[in-house]
Design a protein around this nucleic acid. Structure first.
Lengths: 335, 335
DNA sequence: TTCAAAAATGGAACCGATCCCACTTTTGGA
DNA sequence: TCCAAAAGTGGGATCGGTTCCATTTTTGAA
């Protein structure tokens, strides 16, 4: 493989000039540029990215940490991030902490990224404690958090107003006449699950229809967790005409189970999800849900990370608002 | 940040000894090892991965090329690959060619990986022409292809017997008494879509119930393509009691559309998919499908790539067989 | 006890870029 | 035409590891 020196020699210039030509920084005369271009072509020269990284002290690598890769939620995120990074010539390396058993394990996954000398790190939070996030954020200035808001991380945390999202869900169900509703939440240790859940309950109560504990199931955001929670809900003798699910995955599981039992959606029970992932138009019936702008948020987080890390000036936005997306899984209450 | 030299000095040994200690190759006396370990601890030393890559001429980076990241199929692959690579201390970098307009564009995405000096490359094929694959495979010995079989790439291409898969689908429908079936295929330029499609048609014909052209819709494997194809199918006056979809995504779209039109599955129409992705247990009704061992195949491909690239000896398997997975979306024919 | 083979060692050369700096050439306003 | 400022240039030092090799130390069978 050819090196800068080979190119420089063939072009009859110094190695510094070749380097300047390639990186586009510094000035190179038209004449030199042409000679260099020809030499590069002739030698089929490609810069060695490791040598470049070593001497420039930047790897052009961005680490992305996610708590799981099950289901469409994180996939949409990954897809958006990969695309934004590639557009700017950066590469993503991924750490999926899904198989981590302990919190220590999860941090080990983060170290796996950090030891790789990433220029910047993107954490899709909701599971790490705020304390740990703050610790890492301090050590690591080029760190940005998706879907988690903390004041300490102002300008570096990107979030959706899940409080609003929870309320939108409550209002939608009440407007349809559902006063007795049930809900399946995610793990309440996660900020986003907690926010939407509390806001939902609060809004229901505020509007005169508090949700009693027997109609609240604390579940998880995975398919397996969803199945358990759905089974738990259907095993109670609670009486309800609508269910708010903490995410779309769980809503999908619920619809499938209701279908199996011959319970009509939305005829007998209305179901509303949260997130508005890829598949929501294609459940049967199509899922009414709270649209969370996951892709926009991910892109903003990416942009700001690139800004911090490489001194760019890409547009970004820290806070996003969810909106109601009504499809066919929710309908008016009929006794 | 501390360097090997700092460690060597503090430990009172030479830099070579430290290097040998860290990499685990070569021999280091117990006494030196202890001193080095102490020095590393004390200085909180972490090797610089770029310097290491430059001098050892290996980046520990594996490039992964996929034609798309929509839907669960490629994500299941990514998830498996990330996990296998992390287990062996390697990192994945991803190139999603989804936004590529031309074939040239798609190859540019491959170059994006190659220019990054990946030690090895994993291509999830089905879209690249065999010629291009062969060309790249020749240039690049550490290249492995998932879900595509070619004799030229013996030992480096991993595939599922989609011929068998197509036949299993046909037999299942016929056994249920469905003699008039329709099918929605993927793009037939892709090897995997072509194989299962032709085998399906062939098996139907062989068993006495050929599928007439009006009941064959060439679609795509995306949600949008699925919607179009489903619309096209439902717009014909073709008469059928079952539909074989080229993948689960399309089957899901079909079930949703049938539900919307009040057509019962499997009461009026049976639907069978292909792949057995994450969500198949959770459609309403749960999707009968051909189980393709995507995760096993991906892991094998990964293992063999690691073998080729780093001289390991991990177990792997080149060919996989699909199997029938019966759930609730297919049922006996009733006039 | 002896000594050849094996184990352990230190440090220089090297990987292939970038970046800095001292120096030369070009530019354009007075 | 002159000359200060700007543009362009060459090449050596540097980044922080690995690898090689000549040399020293240890090992254990005879």
């Amino acid at each position: 493989m050819a090196t800068v020196k080979d190119v420089a020699k063939l072009a009859g210039v110094g190695s510094g000039t070749v380097s300047r030509y390639i990186s586009g920084t510094g000035s190179v005369s038209r004449k030199s540029a042409e000679k260099i271009a020809r030499a590069i072509e002739q030698l089929n020269y490609r810069p060695n990215s490791m040598a470049r990284s070593l001497s420039s002290r930047r790897s052009d690598l961005i680490g992305v940490w996610v708590p799981s890769l099950e289901g469409p939620y994180y996939h949409m995120m990954i897809r958006t991030i990969e695309s934004a990074l590639r557009l700017h010539g950066k590469h993503m390396i991924l750490a999926n902490a899904e198989d981590a058993q302990s919190n220590e394990d999860r941090l080990a996954h983060l170290d796996y990224l950090i030891n790789r000398d990433c220029d910047g790190i993107l954490i899709s939070s909701s599971l790490q404690s705020e304390f740990e996030l703050a610790t890492y954020a301090e050590k690591f200035p080029n760190l940005v958090v998706i879907n988690h808001h903390t004041d300490e991380l102002a300008g570096r945390s990107f979030s959706i107003d899940h409080d609003l999202g929870g309320r939108l869900a409550a209002r939608h169900l009440l407007e349809l006449g559902h006063t007795r509703v049930a809900t399946i939440t995610g793990r309440l240790s996660a900020q986003d699950a907690r926010q939407r859940h509390h806001a939902f309950l609060d809004e229901m109560a505020k509007l005169g229809h508090p949700v009693p504990p027997k109609r609240i199931i604390e579940g998880a955001f995975s398919y397996a967790g969803g199945e358990q929670a759905v089974a738990a809900l259907l095993a109670t003798d609670a009486d309800y005409s609508a269910v708010f699910c903490g995410n779309d995955k769980v809503a999908m599981v619920l619809i499938a189970e209701l279908h199996k039992r011959g319970i009509s959606v939305p005829g007998d029970v209305s179901v509303i999800g949260y997130d508005d992932v890829e598949f929501t138009p294609f459940t049967a019936p199509a899922l009414s849900t709270i649209h969370a702008p996951i892709e926009e948020m991910s892109q903003s987080a990416c942009h700001q990370l690139l800004n911090l890390t490489y001194g760019l000036d890409l547009p970004y936005q820290e806070h996003f608002e969810p909106s109601l997306s009504v499809r066919q899984s929710t309908g008016p209450y009929s006794s």
